[in-house]
Design a protein around this nucleic acid. Sequence first.
RNA 1: GGUCCCGUAGUUCAAUGGAUAGAAUAGAAGUUUCCUAAACUUUAGAUACAAGUUCGAUUCUUGUCGGGACCA
Length: 591
Amino acid sequence: MSVVTQIKEASSRAIQELYGIEIQPLDILVNATKPEFEGDYTVVLFAFVKQLKKSPDALGQELGNELVSNHAQLFSGFNVIKGFLNLSIAENYWLRFIGMQFANEQYGHVQPNGQKVMVEYSSPNTNKPLHLGHLRNNFLGRSIAEILKASGHEVVKTCIVNDRGIHICKSMVAWQLFANGATPKSTGTKGDHFVGDYYVKFNDEFKKQVATLVAEGKTQEEAEKEAPVMRAAQQMLLDWEAGKPDVLLLWRNMNHWVYEGFSVTYQIIGSDFDKTYYESDTYLLGKDLVDIGLEKGVFYQKEDGSVWIDLTADGLDEKLVRRKDGTSVYITQDIGLAEQKQKEFNAAQSIYVVGDEQNYHFKVLKLICQKLGLPSADGIYHLSYGMVELPTGKMKSREGTVVDADDLIAEMVAFAKQKTEELGKVKDFTDGELHELYDTIGLGALKFFLLRVDPKKRMVFNPEESIDFHGFTGPFIQYTHARIKSILRKTGPATGNRQPATLLPLEKDLAIHLETFPAVLADAANDHDPSKVAIYVFNLAKIFNSFYTEHSIANAESAEKKNLRIQLAQMTAQVIKTGMSTLGIRVPERM
RNA sequence: GGUCCCGUAGUUCAAUGGAUAGAAUAGAAGUUUCCUAAACUUUAGAUACAAGUUCGAUUCUUGUCGGGACCA
């Protein structure tokens, strides 16, 4: 049990003992004590002074006495300042903690709790390659899956591929017009980029045709409707729905090229899925649910035959669920897919990693599922993340300001190579080891940059400044790990039974910080927020670096000190490794 | 027009209603006969504005201004 939890529970019991009043441990606020005061953890008393009819000072003294006398192995003393009860944790407690955990490779992992969680992420369109925004999605999805696993959940990772619709038809039309039978192979192009290029060509041609039509006297709107390439794309979609063999063949080919390209990128960034759904298989789902909803009175039919749900009582609008021509809409498919996933996996929780422009959509989706009585409805959670913007503003594919995922990764890796060569610390590495190191550092920097921010918030990516390996970055943490490993190679491992009697302040800081790791992971899992782990691991590395410059490990004052410091170093490396792995980031042995 | 989100150092990010608002970076000044200087130490710098709620507000409420998203 964590120290903070122990303090909360002990305080709750003490208040019960002293005053006969029940206060839940969860309602007791415990913070790390500010550095300018004496103590390690602080109980904030203001919240109870009214209820207990005590002055903050008297309450602090009484509670402090009660806690210290009943838990001598945990607390070594206390002081009260204003309404704050500052508790000092016994040094022995930290020493015991380090002695018990320093070699535990599973430290931070929780025993399986039998709860199954689905994480749907990535979810690309098949008409263009991945960009920076997709990377945030992929890193978040992968990371939250790892964090949930570490928290004892069984995780099923899924992906829904948007492989049908007007967007892919546009690429298909352009390919027919301009490709002359070219393929990714014949042109030496990565498949997703190849198809994306035709999507761009379509738009260029479309613009040209619209301009011509406008020059001939059409309105903009008419021109956009009548442009031959647009008509062709729409016809293509109808033909696809009708199952025209040559259209289906082309569609399969182009999607296949895209998947080949994606799989290369996924391999590099570490995205994988237990189950991939394709919209071409799922887009008709949910139709039967509309009828069921009508029967149940959840939905209603308008005179024109269209079917709606009235969500005004829940503070939302009325929402269309089936058009008057009987075709279903986006949300209907999602309800159908939610039902199918539930039948297939029966997960308690279903997390959708999707951008915040769909906040409303997911509110509606969850509400409708609840009203339809789907068993999985309450477990729907939209892990909503903000857009990644450039210093110049939004990325716009039309203006060519989109940051391509493959390009960016290549740049990061190249920068890692350049920096590594400048420093010249790993000249004895083989070519294979070097490439692995560059990948580790370059991708580590990129992943850390995108994960260190609260997912909900929009963030700015500055291509020049964001490629930085100093400070609050992945490589900073990787470097700390490598340095620890280098020490451990020289000192050999710690033994369990030799420890000094006391701790220096920097040693204690490390121990305290290491002790909170499981709580941080639990917090990150609860809030679906990998940034908490990122911030934690960064702080741990920083504390270690201060400790490292101040105190020698290999040449410590005594054999006991040396052993303790090796234990601390070993455990720090372990927690960095575990923490970074939940972010999908590897840490090198040397760099 | 309606609904929702966001405004914190020059910049990029922190801060479950709690003590003097933390980091990083950019700026200034230092640290290498000693475990990897991709490091460490010191220094300066911010809650958009105005009310309210209370022992206490970056956090909650209302309004203003600014930015963004969604729904037609």
